[in-house]
Structures are given as structure tokens and as C-alpha cells.
């Protein structure tokens, strides 16, 4: 299995660093024929949500905290692990944004979009680390 890219980095908790990381991964995926434009669209969207969650909600843009990212890009697999230094959260506490009473709430849709566009996402029990996986054409929901 050809490995196109493999790296591990720690980035500061800034929107700029997050966007640069997003571009590094999503930009690479967009050059690969094995991932369709629709796959690439979903990956960019899901990764943006995960990176923003770590920087904003996890680390609270703190200059003292970093986000650790492990990335593996193969022909048939993208695997990204994102870990922040925040307190974490409980997945069950996030309300379903598609429920009638939550439809007009302005937040809470990021995790739903990640689940929808990726093949697999797994949160650590502490909630401050997430693993996202995408195989071409495979969606979790």
C-alpha cells in the first residue's frame, strides 16, 4: 500500500495554524485519484470541524496549549488523529441537532458532519482525542 504522506506535528492553538494544517492534508487528498471530489469535499469539511473543535473548544485558543496531529495518507485510507490539551467532553452530552427542539440552535452540528462524511470516527474516553478515518466512497452514516 503506497504511503503518500505520514507525519506527526504539534500546532499552536490558532485559527491560522489550523487552516494551514487543513490545507496540508485536504490539499494532498485533492491530488489523489483514489478519492473522488465528493470524498475530498467531505474530508475537508470534517477535518475543519475536528481541528476547530480542538483549537477552539478544546484548547480555547490558549497560547500555552498545543494540538497534536498524526496523519497517514494512503491510496485507500486517510487516518488523522487529533488530540487537544483541553478537559475533553462527553459525547452523550452533545444534543442531537436534528431534533425538532434543537433545529434552531446555532451550534452542535460539527460532530454530526464528521460522522456523516467520514468512514469512521472514534473519540477517546476522555473526549480530547479523536480519530477520523476515510476510505474512498465509504460513509459512516
Amino acid at each position: 500500500m503506497a504511503v503518500h504522506e505520514q507525519f506527526e506535528v504539534s500546532i499552536p492553538s490558532t485559527a491560522e495554524a489550523g487552516q494551514a494544517l487543513l490545507e496540508r492534508i485536504a490539499g494532498k487528498i485533492e491530488t489523489l485519484e483514489s478519492f473522488s471530489p465528493h470524498d475530498a469535499f467531505g474530508i475537508r469539511l470534517a477535518l475543519d470541524e475536528a481541528i476547530v473543535n480542538a483549537i477552539k473548544h478544546g484548547n480555547g485558543f490558549s497560547p500555552d496549549k498545543t494540538v497534536r496531529v498524526k496523519c497517514l495518507i494512503e491510496d485507500q485510507l486517510l487516518q488523522v488523529e487529533i488530540e487537544d490539551q483541553g478537559p475533553g467532553f462527553c459525547l452523550e452530552d452533545v444534543p442531537d441537532p436534528t431534533e425538532e427542539e434543537n433545529l434552531d440552535r446555532p451550534c452542535g452540528r460539527g460532530i454530526m458532519l464528521m460522522r456523516s462524511f467520514m468512514s469512521n470516527i472514534e473519540y477517546s474516553p476522555t473526549g480530547n482525542r479523536v480519530l477520523l478515518e476515510k476510505r474512498p466512497g465509504v460513509r459512516m452514516q
Binding site: F41, D48, E49, D104, P106, C107, R109, G110
Partner: peptide
């Protein structure tokens, strides 16, 4: 528009209100 994040959706919901 080619990409739109959930944070942008949040702004649209607030706008709608």
C-alpha cells in the same frame, strides 16, 4: 461558496432568528 462549516451554519441560524 464551495465549503461551509458548522460555525457558518450557526451564523445563518442566528441570522434567521
Amino acid at each position: 461558496v464551495e465549503y461551509l462549516s458548522s460555525a457558518a451554519l450557526g451564523k445563518l441560524i442566528t441570522m434567521d432568528k
